[in-house]
């Protein structure tokens, strides 16, 4: 457990390098959300902005490790390949999760202070959870590409693979719609939206689980 703690700490230290930028960005977001809240309820938008801007920063820890060839050094210490991969996934997840939590908290406080209350908070939180799941999908598609090709070489694949997946999913959905139009008419979208947090929870476990296993398989075979 200590090893994972140390590896998480190592990843976290990456943010030291741009802590000034982070503080400045948070201040800017607070200012913009405050300004936006004066016009309308932007609780959801504010929360998602935080997630998109800060939640995907964890990729930079891969970049720093690659530049310093840190994996080689880490694996020569009493650290296993499994622990290195696991710590990266924990870091990616925690970074996204904390980003959306902070986003929700900041947006909530500002919205309540400026507008007195948040409208439809349940629906807003559902949308935040959907956004979080989308970011999880992107990150979980990115990480195996990085393990396979590296941060620089894997940049293109990190875009192409999730795009291809979404494209194929779209085609599959369209085919279903053409072949079984009745199926869509029977779906209660409102009900799906209501239970979306559960679906998202399951999807997050699925994305992270599959992605972790793929990355581990790649990393176990990799010559460092």
């Amino acid at each position: 457990m200590n090893t994972i703690k140390g590896l998480l700490l190592k990843n976290l230290y990456v943010f030291k390098n741009f802590k000034g930028n982070i503080i400045f960005s948070i201040c800017m977001f607070i200012f913009l959300i405050t300004l936006g809240s004066m016009q309308s309820d932007i609780f959801t938008v504010g929360s998602i902005l935080f997630l998109i801007f800060f939640g995907m920063n964890s990729i930079s820890s891969f970049s720093y490790d690659e530049n310093a060839d840190s994996d080689k050094y880490l694996l020569s210490l009493p650290i296993t390949r499994k622990e290195v991969v696991l710590s990266k996934y924990l870091f990616v997840f925690l970074n996204s999760f904390i980003s959306i939590l902070v986003g929700i908290l900041v947006s909530f406080i500002i919205t309540v202070l400026v507008r007195g209350k948040v409208n439809n908070i349940g629906d807003s939180l559902r949308i935040c959870f959907l956004a979080f799941t989308s970011v999880s999908f992107l990150m979980c598609a990115n990480v195996p590409c990085i393990y396979k090709w590296g941060v620089e070489k894997g940049r293109m694949q990190s875009v192409i693979i999730p795009a291809l997946f979404i494209f194929l999913l779209g085609i599959f959905g369209s085919l279903l719609f053409i072949l079984f139009p009745q199926l869509y008419l029977n779906i209660d979208l409102l009900y799906v939206f209501k239970i979306s947090p559960y679906i998202c929870f399951a999807l997050n476990i699925l994305f992270y689980g599959i992605s972790y296993l793929i990355s581990l398989k790649i990393f176990l075979k990799k010559s460092i």
Partner: peptide
């Protein structure tokens, strides 16, 4: 040719290493 990220300092390295050993 391999070590920790160059943004770390000697204090950070101590904090990491005591978790590894």
């Amino acid at each position: 040719d391999s070590f920790f990220s160059p943004i770390l300092d000697a204090n950070d390295i101590n904090k990491l290493m005591k978790n590894f050993y």
